[in-house]
C-alpha cells in the first residue's frame, strides 16, 4: 500500500472562528494505483493532497506514505499544481536539474538524466530557454520533466492541467498516461473536471461539499491503454460518468445555493 489516510481531519482557525475543511476520513491507495479526487471547490480535496505532500499538518489522525508517517515535507513524492511552480529565474535545464542537485548527483550524470527527460517530454533544444519564453503547455512539460527526473514513486497532482485549453489538456493527459504506463507510479490526481477523472483514473473518489468527506468511490472499468481523445465515446465511459455525476451534482448545487 502506498498511501494510508487514517481518520484524518482538518480544521482551520481564522478570524476567531473554526472551520472544518475535512471531517475525519479514511482512505487507502495501493502502490501503482491511479486515483482521482473530484468534488466542488472547498471540499477539501486539495487540502488532503497537500497533507499527503506534508505541506499542511493534519489536525487529527495520521497519514502514512510507503509505511512512513508524514509529519514534515514529504520528499518522496512528486508534486505538481495548476499554478506554475517552475522557477522563472532558472532556464529549462537548470529547473529540471534542481532536484538532482539536491540529491548530490555529479554534473555529468545530471546532464545525461536531464537530457533524457527533456527529450522524453519533447523539449530537446529548449534547455537554455527561460520559462517566460515558453508557451503554457511547454511550461507544464518542464514541470513534468522536473517531477519525473528524480523518479519519485508517487505523483501528487493538483489540477495540473487546469489552466490549459481543451486540446492541449487532452495532449497532456495522453502524456501522463504514457508516463504512468511506463513507470507504474502511484498517482493521486485532483480535478474538478469529472471527464478528466474518468479518462485517467482507475478509481474516482467523490468528495462532498464543506465540510469535506468522502461521498462515494467508484472503479472505472475501462481497460488501459486509454486514448484521451477517444475514450469519451465508449459506453463504459458514459456509464461511469453518469453514475459519478449523480453523486457529484447535488454537492455542486449545495455549494451554489450558499
Amino acid at each position: 500500500m502506498a498511501i494510508a489516510v487514517e481518520a484524518v481531519e482538518k480544521r482551520y482557525v481564522a478570524r476567531g472562528r473554526e472551520t472544518v475543511a475535512l471531517s475525519p476520513i479514511d482512505l487507502r491507495i495501493e502502490a501503482g494505483e491511479f486515483v482521482a479526487f473530484v468534488g466542488p471547490s472547498g471540499c477539501g480535496k486539495s487540502t488532503l493532497l497537500n497533507m499527503v505532500a506534508g505541506i499542511l499538518p493534519a489536525t487529527a489522525g495520521r497519514i502514512l506514505h510507503d509505511g512512513r508517517v508524514v509529519d514534515r515535507i514529504n520528499t518522496h513524492v512528486g508534486y505538481m499544481t495548476q499554478q506554475d511552480s517552475v522557477l522563472p529565474w532558472r532556464t529549462v535545464f537548470e529547473n529540471v536539474e534542481l532536484p538532482l542537485r539536491f540529491r548530490g548527483l555529479g554534473s555529468a550524470e545530471r546532464q545525461q538524466k536531464v537530457g533524457e527527460m527533456l527529450s522524453r517530454v519533447g523539449l530537446s533544444g529548449f534547455e537554455a530557454a527561460y520559462p517566460i519564453e515558453l508557451s503554457g503547455g511547454m511550461r507544464k512539460r518542464v514541470a513534468l520533466a522536473q517531477l519525473l527526473v528524480y523518479e519519485p514513486g508517487t505523483l501528487l497532482m493538483d489540477e495540473p492541467f487546469g489552466a490549459l485549453d481543451a486540446q492541449l489538456k487532452l495532449l497532456m493527459q495522453k502524456q501522463l498516461l504514457d508516463i504512468w504506463a511506463a513507470g507504474q507510479q502511484t498517482v493521486v490526481f485532483v480535478t474538478h473536471d469529472l471527464a478528466e477523472a474518468v479518462t485517467l483514473a482507475q478509481r474516482v473518489v467523490v468528495f462532498s461539499g464543506r465540510p469535506g468527506r468522502i461521498k462515494a468511490i467508484d472503479e472505472i472499468d475501462i481497460p488501459y491503454p486509454r486514448d484521451p481523445f477517444r475514450v469519451r465515446f465508449l459506453p463504459a465511459f458514459e456509464a461511469a460518468y453518469a453514475r459519478l455525476w449523480d453523486q457529484l451534482a447535488p454537492e455542486i448545487a449545495k455549494g451554489e445555493a450558499v
Binding site: 515535507i73 520528499t75 522557477l87 534542481l98
Partner: peptide
C-alpha cells in the same frame, strides 16, 4: 510565492537551498 518554496522543498531542497535558489532570486 509560497508555491515555489513548497515545490522546491518537496523536490528535496533544504533551508539553505531554498534561500539560495528561491528566496534570493
Amino acid at each position: 510565492n509560497p508555491i515555489y518554496i513548497h515545490a522546491t522543498r518537496i523536490m528535496g531542497g533544504g533551508g539553505g537551498e531554498v534561500l539560495r535558489h528561491v528566496i534570493i532570486p
